[in-house]
Every structure is written in C-alpha cells, then in structure tokens.
Design a protein around this nucleic acid. Structure first.
Length: 524
RNA sequence: GCCCCCUUCGUCUAGUGGCCUAGGACAUCGGAUUCUCAGUCCGAAGACAGGGGUUCGACUCCCCUAGGGGGUACCA
C-alpha cells in the first residue's frame, strides 16, 4: 500500500463536537494503524474572522484526547499552509485549468432562473438538469451578459451519461448516474470558492490517500470525483462513516438541540452531574460551551481521555462480540475500516459514563492526586499554591472514597468537608434532620462522644472497636448510631467509610464537630 | 419530486445459509453482601421493521413496502 495519509478538516467553530471527534478518531486510527500520517486541515473558506481563537479549543481538545496530527496548524508540515483561507491562489489556478480544458464553464444564469427550471422539473416529476442556457460558450457571450449586469459563477460541466462507480471502504460498491448530478458551482460570483473544489484540491495537494469522512458526503462524492479527474488527479480511496446520532433517535447529533436531549433521562443525568461540578469550580454553564455534545465538557468535569476515546471507538465499530476495552496499542492493532458499521449509532452518555467508571477504577491513585488538587483549588477549598501537607491527606481521602469517585470533579463531594473549618462546614439539612434530630439520636451521639473522648490511640482499629463495644452495650444496631455520627462530623448523609472519616478528621476535629452538631440539634 | 445510503434487545453491537430455542456490553428490574453511598456477586426481562420469494433450511441471498438519514445550495 502506498503511504497512508488521512485528514480531518474541522471548521473553526470554537468547540469540538463529539461526532466530529469520532470521525477524526477513525481517521487518526486508520492512519496510525497503517503506519501513515494524520493531517489536520482547517476549513475556513467563508471569511471567518477570528480563526485563531475559534481554533484553539479544537486543537486543545484533540491534544487532550491524544489525537495528535503530523501536519497542520501549529505543527506545520511540507504542504503548509493548512488553512483553506490561505490557499485561494491555488484554487484560482485550478478553476482556470478546469475552464481551459472545458470541464467547467462560466454560467450567467440568475439564481431565480435556475430556481424556475428546478421547479418546473419538479412539477413534471422528472429529475432536474440545468439547461445550460446561460453557459458562456465564448468570451463574447460572457462579455455581453456581463454588460447586461449579469454575474457569472463557474460550474462543472458534469457528464450526462454513464455511471459514476466507486468502491467505498465502508459501504462497498456504490454507483450514481452521472445524468443525475448537477452542474455544481465551484466558484461563486464574488470569486470565493466552494467547498467541493477546495476539498478536492487540498486532498490532492496534501497527498491524502484515504478520504474518511461522515456519510453526508457520500452523495457528494461523484461531483468531487469529477472535479478530481478533470484536474488529472489520482483518486483517493473513500470511506464514508455513519454519523453519530442523538440519544434515542437516528437524527444526527447536533449541539443546538440540547433541550431535546435533556429530555432523555440518561443524558440529563450526565449533564446535571457535570453542572454540579461546574458550579463548584466556577466554570460558566452555557449551552454554547458546556454540554455533553462538546468534548470540553468532559475535560472540565474530569473525565479521562482514554474513556472517551474507547467509547467513541466503539460507536460504529467493533472488533468482535466480546472485546470492550482497548488501550492505545490494542486500538491500533485491531482497527480496520472493514469493521465500521453502516448504520448511524446514537450517542449514549450513560455508556460513556460506564467506560469512565472502568478507566477511573484502573487509574493509579497517585496520578489522581495532582488533578484533584486542581479541583479543590478551583472550588476554593484550598489555597493556590496548595498547602504542602495536602497530598497525604487527600490521598487518604481518595483512597477511602475508592470507586465512589467516578470523575476527577467528584473529589469535591468526598473531600470538601475535610477542608472546611470545624465550626463552619456545611450541613445537608435533610440528612441532619433525619439522622441527628431524630428521636433519641442526639442522646446516643452525646454518649458516644464521651467514649471517643476517652480514646488515646486514635486510629481506624480503635475507632471501630469503640463503636462495636458501644452498640453491644447499648443493645442497638449499628445503623442506629453510625449515620448520626457521619452527619454530625461531615454534614453529609453519604460519604466514605466512617472509621476512615473520623481517623482523617482526627480526634480534636471529630469532637468539635460533634459538639457543634449537638448544639445545633438542641437549638432546633 | 428525483437520486443515494441505512434498518438485530431501550442503547452500542456479534452474526457473511445450518454452530442462533440469536451471543456480549450499557441501561432496567429482582436477590445477596455492606455503616451510608459507590461497588461486588448471582439472577431476570428484553431484538432479527413488515410482506413476498429462493432454498431441505434464512438474521444471513433476491424483490416489494414501510421507516430513518443524506444529497438535490452561489452551505460544509
């Protein structure tokens, strides 16, 4: 096989769409699995103003996911520039060549005139084909029409017989009638260039061997093939991927329909969970920047990139009937286009969550600590720079929390109380009412507080022993006391194991917190 | 309207004529374990879009219908 080169061509929109990443991932995977290169090209044909700013989050997102590019923005490469906005001279040259060889023509029809022909055809239920009435056969034609105030566009003079046949690496053999293909515009009246022309020229110039893109381009392929062939280019291999569909439907996933997706329970849960974290770390929550259709959402909330990549890889691809987890090497070893599915796959935020759960579980404790310190800082629970003793304590907390922490941001829920002052930590009032203010609970708590006060050697074992002895003497079940201790010392109804909790807190804090809670209960 | 593509449990999928009374995963629902929560273990329920062919035999091949999606743009 000749050198494999694939490309992904994002538009600088300011955000990285989850569906776009999936397509890019497959391009990257295919290139890397075949010892090739992955190129990033920027589709900024329409006069985008602030390209740099709109591009930054996209490049950042790719890097975060570990999808690195061999050529493109910021890294350059032998075919630079990789921005369509900077390649207009080249497109102009190609249009001239197309005009010269007769594959394209200048057309002076007004949009209304084309529209009228189209409607007439539809009325008669026959396929529309432009009459080429305003096709300039000569310079004189052109001059005359221009004098008439008409504006010219450049159209491809598509073949009107035969079939366009090609083999798609995902779809198999596909065929289109040439006669059904419109004389597509390649250059607008204002001189700007249409995507199809730019794309074909770029793919050729950048030596792209495999055009892997979303299936919405399948129907566009014949016209691109014609443009490429007319320019004398060798054709790349094509592979059209099914698009990523919205939760619970087969429509294409779109950033704009967030409201609709939030009606889906699983999607809503993931969103709410993310929002709760975002609020605590002061990340603005707007549909434009913060929602589960955008990759940045996951980075903010603290998902692991490998979870996202693994999930996305399995959206429209599978190795067999069993294998679910792939590390980098396994991905590259097993990825093939042949095993890409043909039908669209809906995005299931809950399943992504399950992958996150898995990868978080095997992520080394030590490596969790630095990012988690970041969350504590952003939530203003600790200073920046962090106090030097934060590491060991946080490690104990995180270890005790175990797999309760699903994403990095969850650390806030389990650690916050340990970083708040004994006289000012927050209470979950509902839990407090249920467990501390309950009949008799405060008395038991007060009694057990004295047992705690008597412990000299404060550790998990002695704490557990003390509580066990206490419930035996009192002839009560552990459930009758343990919850009130938890709420009294942490303010929360749920949390890490109680003995770990008290040990981390230390004797002094534990007693102070119980006292504060008893006072609070008494005053209620 | 015309052209093209697609269609297996709620979701992601395995399945290339007999291995399928259709397998796995997520979600769901039970039950067990546990100091809460999370987890873990065990179990249950759940699909070949419909109709015709072809064949000894069809989830697998062919045709039709329906549904979904895309294209038909001086959008990408």
């Amino acid at each position: 096989m000749p050198q494999v080169r694939t490309r992904f061509a994002p538009s600088p929109t300011g955000y990285l769409h989850i569906g776009g990443v999936r397509t890019a991932l497959f391009c990257w995977l295919f290139a890397k699995a075949n010892g090739g290169q992955f190129i990033l090209r920027i589709d900024d044909t329409d006069e985008a103003r602030n390209i740099e700013a709109a591009l930054a989050p996209i490049l950042h997102g790719f890097r975060w996911l570990g999808i690195d590019w061999d050529e493109g923005p910021e890294v350059g490469g032998p075919h630079a520039p990789y921005f369509q906005s900077q390649r207009k001279d080249r497109y102009r040259e190609c249009v001239a060549q197309l005009l010269d060889c007769g594959a394209a023509y200048r057309d002076y029809a007004r949009p209304e005139e084309i529209q009228a022909e189209r409607e007439a055809a539809q009325k008669e239920k026959r396929p529309f084909l432009y009459s080429r009435q305003w096709m300039a056969e000569s310079l004189q034609d052109a001059a005359a029409w221009e004098a008439d105030g008409r504006e010219g566009v450049v159209r491809m003079k598509m073949p009107r017989e035969g079939k366009c046949e090609f083999t798609d690496l995902v779809r198999g053999d596909v065929a289109f009638d040439w006669a059904k293909e419109q004389d597509t515009v390649i250059q607008r009246a204002d001189g700007s260039f249409i995507y199809h022309l730019a794309s074909v020229v770029d793919d050729h110039d950048f030596e792209i061997s495999h055009v892997i893109r979303a299936e919405e381009h399948l129907s566009n392929t014949p016209r691109q093939i014609f443009i490429a062939q007319s320019l004398g280019f060798d054709l790349p291999q094509y592979a059209h991927l099914p698009y990523v569909a919205e939760p619970g439907s087969k429509s294409k996933l779109s950033k704009r329909k967030l409201d609709k997706y939030l009606k889906n329970g699983d999607f809503a849960k993931v969103m709410q969970h993310g929002e709760a974290i975002a609020r605590r770390i002061h990340v603005p929550i707007t549909p434009e920047t913060f929602n589960p259709v955008i990759v940045d959402f996951y980075e903010q909330v603290g998902y692991l990139p490998q979870a996202i990549v693994n999930y996305l890889m399995l959206l429209g691809w599978s190795l067999d009937d069993k294998t679910e987890f792939f590390n980098r090497e396994q991905m590259l070893e097993s990825f093939t286009l042949e095993r890409v599915t043909k039908a669209p796959a809906s995005f299931d935020a809950k399943k992504l969550w399950a992958f996150q759960d898995h990868y978080m579980g095997e992520f080394p404790l030590k490596q969790k600590i630095p990012p988690m310190i970041g969350y504590l800082q952003k939530a203003r629970l600790i200073s920046d720079p962090p106090p030097c003793d934060v590491g060991p304590t946080l490690t104990r907390i995180v270890e005790a929390a175990g797999d309760r922490i699903k994403v990095m941001g969850d650390v806030l829920d389990y650690a916050d109380t340990f970083y708040q002052p004994d006289d000012a930590f927050d209470y979950d009032e509902q839990a407090f009412a249920k467990r501390v203010e309950k009949q008799g609970a405060a008395d038991l708590l007060a009694e057990f507080r004295e047992r705690l006060a008597a412990i000299d050697d404060w550790n998990v074992q002695t704490l557990e022993a003390a509580l066990q002895r206490f419930i035996e003497e009192k002839q009560i079940k552990i459930g009758e006391i343990i919850h009130s201790i938890r709420v009294a010392t942490t303010g929360k109804g749920v949390g890490i194991g109680l003995y770990d909790c008290l040990d981390i807190l230390g004797k002094e804090s534990t007693l102070a917190r119980i006292d504060r809670s008893l006072a609070k209960a008494a005053s209620a």
